[in-house]
Amino acid sequence: MPTIIVDVMPKAELLDPAGKAVAGALDRLGDSTFSAVRIGKRFELTVDGEADDAAVAAARELAESLLSNSVIEDVVSVRVAGE
């Protein structure tokens, strides 16, 4: 069955304490390749039928209304898996 993937990230201007904590662990590992970490969420929506434009539109609406809170997060992508 096709899957639609929704990615949600905390707004760029917000502190991301979870990401900061992971960045702190990188520091302690002595890794200097990466300077920052931000943590978001990935949702995999299994489509009952075709992953057509209507399904993607429905996923986008769900992403904006339920899967994210626009006060604190941004929906960064809504896409069909494998495309």
Binding site: L14, L15, P17, K20, N69, V71, I72
Partner: peptide, 17 residues
Amino acid sequence: LVEAHLLPGGLIRNDHG
């Protein structure tokens, strides 16, 4: 209440983690 949009704004993880 904020998730139900009865009050504005949002609540996020404490800044000190």
